[in-house]
């Protein structure tokens, strides 16, 4: 019985203890995120609204030609990375937008931190703000999720640290002057005061990996997608905060 209780507690505790980076941010930073007219991420959202109806590429189609208004993509960001049957692997929201650009619009794929991609992904992400993250964890996604979980616990770099060393084991403690967040990917693209700009999940991942003196994963690499998949699954239950503001 005690064992059963303990197992139940252990199973339930990650969900109970989940803390968005928002909860660790200062009052001022939170106020910035809460007020859409003060949140600088909305500069990109507005740019995205302009781009939404602009035809581009050889097909001469805009996002609006297929999707109508952006709010038809409501809640979509809350379930990405998702399985792509054609490619037979999970893809991120950025990759999904790029697939649209390449196959439907006839234009080039963009890097996650390209201003156009940031604007579009911020606009699409915003449509899911407040929605609980639910990323599928079964079926064909399972091995990729396991990969992500393994990479999350894999020690690497000259400092020989894994993601879990900080974001699971020492979350809430301090690194220098800053609180170590739990590392939930629930608000990307994200406006970081440190960056003085909006940045993608891949940019954040790169900063962490460079921080432990490891070789960063490429934005389209299988590792980066697996980690994003694992992190979004781990953040399940938290709500999407795009475009979030962090210190």
């Amino acid at each position: 019985m005690i064992r059963l209780l303990l197992a139940a507690l252990l199973f339930a505790s990650p969900a109970l203890a989940q803390r968005s980076g928002y909860d660790d941010a200062s009052v001022q930073t939170r106020a910035m995120q809460d007020d859409d007219s003060a949140n600088p991420g909305f500069l990109w959202v507005r740019h995205g609204e302009e781009l939404w109806s602009q035809p581009t590429g050889t097909a001469g189609k805009s996002c609006a030609n297929c999707h109508n208004a952006p709010d038809t993509l409501r809640n979509v960001a809350a379930r990405y990375p998702a399985w792509d049957a054609t490619l037979a692997r999970p893809i991120t929201l950025v990759q999904r937008i790029n697939r649209c650009r390449e196959s439907h619009q006839g234009t080039t794929a963009l890097a996650p931190d390209n201003d156009i991609m940031l604007a579009l992904s911020a606009l699409v992400g915003l449509q899911s703000r407040g929605t609980k993250i639910v990323v599928a964890n079964d079926g064909p996604l399972a091995p990729f999720l396991a990969d992500g979980a393994r990479l999350f616990r894999q020690r690497q770099g000259q400092l020989n640290l894994s993601c879990a060393n900080c974001h699971d084991d020492r979350a809430g403690q301090r690194l220098g002057g800053s609180i170590i967040p739990e590392g939930h990917a629930n608000g990307y693209p994200q406006y970081r005061l440190e960056w003085q700009g909006l940045g993608s999940f891949n940019r954040r991942l790169r900063s962490c990996l460079i921080g432990v003196r490891a070789e960063p994963y490429g934005p389209a690499s299988a590792e980066a997608v697996a980690i994003e998949l694992y992190l979004m699954q781990r953040a399940g239950g938290l709500t999407v905060e795009t475009p979030s503001v962090r210190p």
Binding site: S37, F42, L43, R46, D115, G197
Partner: peptide, 10 residues
């Protein structure tokens, strides 16, 4: 963002 785009709310 290279182009200055203002937002105003009142």
């Amino acid at each position: 963002m290279a182009i200055a785009t203002p937002r105003v709310r009142l």
